[in-house]
Each structure stands twice: as C-alpha cells, then as structure tokens.
C-alpha cells in the first residue's frame, strides 16, 4: 500500500445507461509492468482515461502518484506519459519537431530539452530518423517515436493503450524490450493489450470484462486460482492428427469439461474420472498417433474460463429475472478478485 503508485478504489464510470467501468479496485506497485487485459469494449480505455485525469470517475476514488485523479488531474499529467492506441503524432512534422513540441508542452527549458532528446533518442534508437516526417515512418518506428514523445519529460508512470496493435512481430518484440528496460529504471508501466503472450510478460495482470474486474494478480498466482482448474479436474494437451476434426469429437466425450484449439494442439479440461486410455480409446487414437500430456493453465485458459463463467452467471441472472419462479440460483463460479498489492 505504501509503495503503491496507483491506488484504485471502487471506481465506476457510466456513460448514460452504459456502465463502462463497474466498481473496480486494484493497486499497482512502483516499477511494475501492470497489464490490463480484456476484450474490445470491456472498459480498458475508459480505465486508462480516468487514471490519466482526462475523464472523471462517476463514483469511487483513484490516486496516481499520490494525487487524486478527480481533484489533482493537472499534477498527475505533469508526471505521467501516455501513448495511445492509434498513432497520434503530427504526421506533417518531422520526428524531431514532434519531440521538440512535446518537450515544450511539458515546459522543458532548451538545455534540458536537448539533454532529454539525446536520452530518448538513444533509448529508442531514433537518431537516424529524426529529420523524417513522422507520417512517413514505418509502423514500428512510429511507435518508437510515440514512445520517445511520451518519455521526453521523464515520467514516473507510463500509460500505454494497446501499444503494439498493428505492428509487425519484430517491432513488437523490440518495443517490449524497451518497456522492460524502462521498468528496470523504475518507471511504472500500465499497459492494455489483448495479446496473451504480452500478458505473460507483465509482472501483474488484471482482467476486465464488461466493465467488471474478473481477476487481478501475478500471472503465476492467477493461473493457480481454484476457479481456473476446478477441484477434481486436470488440464491436458492433446496432440493428434487433424486437430480441428478431433476437437468436435473430443467435446462430445463425457468428462471433458472444455476443449480449445491451441495451434496444432488441443487444450483439454477433463474430469479426474476420465483416464488417459479411455479418452484415447473413445477417440479411436493410440499412443503412437497421438500424445497426451498434463499441462499447467496458460493465461488464455484463465481468461477463457473466467469469461465463460461470468457469461454463464449473467445468462442465469437474466433467466432468473425473466422466470421469477425458477428458484435455483447458480453457484458463483468465478473466484473473488484478489489484490495485487
């Protein structure tokens, strides 16, 4: 709590009837790479906007670097950086002009600006592209420039809204290397993404769906949550020829709770009653043609399971609402969100 750079308590944001963020609480430690995950329209951008002090919460409280987002937004803005989802630099200005512009916006003195420009250029290796118009840079270089602009005033917290959307895999990896370097220097990073491999690189993750925080914690803790691999079940990876066709057959087998395609393999959530031999026999496969091995849950498994549970719960609720006599309330499947702090 003392070391928390961000402290979000029971925050909500409504747009008319739409509840974009619904009573969310979490903390972020200094130097963390905090990943906020969730499907499109789940409230990630709304959350970032509230934390950056550009959108007031409807209810609840949040502080960033000790400043309240509603009352002290301007103090927050001076000490944070923000890199948005879409390329939002001035395409008709050169990389250097963009950097100078943001430096001046933050009120950097000429000498300090020159020093900071050298620093961010070195960090992002932009040196060779300074006099190019920002609009003519390739996707990866645009992101580097955007990052450099967001870092020009040496912020303590950096918000990145889907920073790798639409850039190639190499540029994506390079960008992440940069982010690790920054975190190593004590900059706190708050990243939204829907790439699961990026989620695995975060030191802390939160998953938000329909404005509600579904789960929050260290990736390894989240994977061990009881709701993810319920009591009496196991996770297996099945490798077999024709996985797509096998998938539809495996789903029909009794004891198989869930089956998802993962590349050329199928991830299964099966009841402990079902033995390996029975499963293979039911699929007409032998251990020569197919392999079955126990695995730990991935983050994707976590989110798929938790989202599904939430949806089932919501569907059951609306069912109960439309048929008031149906008295059976479904058991709540998802675990209580655990705090990262």
């Amino acid at each position: 709590m003392i070391r928390a750079v961000m402290d979000v308590r029971d925050i909500s944001r409504h747009f008319g009837d739409l509840v974009a963020v619904d009573h969310v609480s979490f903390q972020v430690e200094r130097g963390a790479i905090f990943g906020l995950l969730g499907p499109n329209g789940s409230g990630k951008s709304t959350m970032i906007r509230m934390l950056c002090g550009v959108l007031e919460p409807t209810s609840g409280q949040a502080s960033v670097l000790g400043y309240d987002v509603a009352r002290d937004a301007e103090s927050i803005k001076r000490r944070i950086g923000y890199m948005s989802q879409s390329f939002s630099l001035y395409a008709d200005l050169t990389a250097r002009e963009n950097l100078e512009f943001y430096g001046r916006i933050y009120g950097l003195e000429p000498a300090r600006l020159a020093e900071r420009m050298r620093a961010v250029e070195a960090l992002t290796s932009l040196d060779g592209h300074l006099d190019q118009l920002a609009g003519t840079l390739s996707g990866g270089w645009k992101q580097r420039l955007a990052l450099a602009c967001a870092l020009i005033h040496e912020p303590e917290v950096l918000f990145l809204d889907e920073p790798t959307a639409g850039i190639d895999p190499v540029a994506r990896r390079d960008l992440w290397d940069l982010l690790f370097a920054l975190a190593g220097r004590g900059v706190t990073l708050f990243v939204t993404t829907h790439y699961m491999d990026e989620a695995e690189r975060c030191s802390d993750i939160a998953y938000i769906d329909n404005g509600e925080l579904v789960v929050c914690g260290k990736p390894e803790d989240v994977k061990r949550l009881s709701g993810v691999t319920p009591q009496g079940t196991r996770r297996w990876e099945l490798e077999a020829p024709g996985p797509a066709e096998t998938l539809s057959r495996v789903r029909k087998i009794e004891g198989v709770r869930d089956a998802t395609l993962f590349g050329q393999a199928i991830h299964l959530l099966v009841s402990n009653d079902l033995s390996e031999a029975t499963l293979l026999a039911k699929l007409n496969l032998s251990s020569d043609t197919a392999s079955l091995r126990p695995i730990a849950a991935t983050l994707e498994d976590v989110f798929v399971t938790l989202t599904r549970a939430t949806q089932e719960r919501l569907a059951a609720h609306s069912d109960a609402a439309s048929h008031p006599k149906g008295s059976i309330a479904p058991a709540k499947v998802n675990p209580e969100p655990i705090s990262a702090a």
Binding site: Y82, A91, Y102
Partner: peptide
C-alpha cells in the same frame, strides 16, 4: 487524428 486526446493528457 487523435492528437487532441494526446494533448489533453499533457499539462
């Protein structure tokens, strides 16, 4: 272009 939103995040 979205640059106005970017400006709102600055002081």
């Amino acid at each position: 272009l979205g640059t106005l939103e970017q400006l709102f995040v600055t002081p």
